[in-house]
Nucleic acid binder design. Structure first.
Lengths: 133, 133
DNA sequence: TCCGATTCGATGCATATACATCTATCTGCT
DNA sequence: AGCAGATAGATGTATATGCATCGAATCGGA
């Protein structure tokens, strides 16, 4: 099961990354912009939880995104926490990238058909929920 | 879809890797041993195709596995090709690791239920086939 | 109040991943 | 035979990923 998921992920990642390449963005980076766009300001740890991503992995990826100035970081009342949100240029970058992502997504959806698509989305999220506890 | 697959893959990988950690093996490495165990001797490129893995990624991972002497590499009649197979110690390592992998797999299967499990396996492989052309 | 235990995020290290490019080899055409 | 183009893998570089560990801040009980 793990191998099947990883193989599908490799194939999908190549396709989505290709669509985003003109922007110099990867799928992983786009996903973070997207979550922040939807969630507003959230703590580092919470973002890692949403993505089921180890917080140390997130630290590195945020550093790469931050090089472009797309993220604002604030200390929380709990001064160990870092609260993240998109900067204005981050919002602009997300708006620029969104159509490219959307196109890849729609193309794949058309290829698989909406029934398989919806079915899959549900099942995958069930697995993530089950495995991540 | 890409983000959902990647998130599930991260969660699953942590679980399978934990099961294999006592052996010093990762899930990716185990998968390669498994494919070679099933396939016998195959060329580098063919293995990459089976795994939907870029051949350059495979080169690095094979190098890591080869450090332990688990792989035999021969030149083909076409002297550009590298034919791979498990060495005797590679077969032994696979046999050692198999119960650990099996246990993680069975535990997950029990958690998800056979119906969801079989359903998912089919759908995931459909996606891989569709995306990898 | 104080101290041990916990939590948040960062760093060191190792593997996973792939694109661009390189070298060696092969294939087909002349 | 000889050369142009194609193909198999390897290498340079960058991102993705997470475990072990660390320092700082917080929390909870004595």
């Amino acid at each position: 099961m793990c191998a099947s998921f990883r193989r599908a992920s490799r194939a999908l990642t190549q396709r989505y990354d290709e669509a985003l390449r003109p922007l110099g963005l990867t799928g992983t980076q786009f996903t973070i912009l997207q979550v922040l766009s939807l969630a507003g300001e959230i703590p580092h740890g919470k973002l890692g939880e949403i993505l089921a991503m180890d917080s140390t992995t997130l630290t590195r990826t945020l550093k790469i995104i931050s090089r472009h100035g797309w993220i604002s970081i604030r200390r929380g009342k709990d001064r160990r926490e870092r609260w993240l949100r998109l900067s204005p240029s981050g919002e602009a970058e997300f708006r620029r990238a969104h159509p490219h992502w959307k196109k890849a997504q729609e193309q794949l959806r058309a290829q698989l058909g909406p029934k398989l698509w919806n079915n899959l989305m549900g099942l995958i999220n069930q697995v993530t929920a089950a495995v991540a506890e």
